[in-house]
């Protein structure tokens, strides 16, 4: 079951760390970093049902954002 309630300690700190990881990268390099990050995290989660929920949520919210 995908967690949707807050689960990250120090969320502001994590957000800053995520942006820092992208600092100085071109857009293409940033996309590549994100792709690696997705794969690393997916392997860490290791639960296909959770990943399927996450993929669906990510896809659906993109559609909502465009409205």
């Amino acid at each position: 079951m995908l967690k949707l309630d807050p689960n990250l300690p120090d969320p502001d700190g994590f957000y800053a760390e995520l942006l820092a990881a992208h600092e100085g990268l071109t857009e293409a390099e940033s996309h590549a970093l994100n792709a690696r990050l997705v794969l690393i995290l997916a392997n860490h989660i290791g639960d296909r049902a959770v990943l399927a929920e996450a993929l669906t949520l990510a896809r659906e919210t993109a559609a909502g954002g465009r409205r």
Binding site: H31, A32, A35, R36, V38, L39, I40, N43
Partner: peptide
């Protein structure tokens, strides 16, 4: 291509990526 290359980028260091 981006995800394919991401898998190859990781494969040398991270064994999990080799399975992909």
């Amino acid at each position: 291509r981006m995800f394919r290359d991401a898998v190859l980028d990781l494969a040398e260091r991270a064994p999990f990526a080799r399975s992909l």
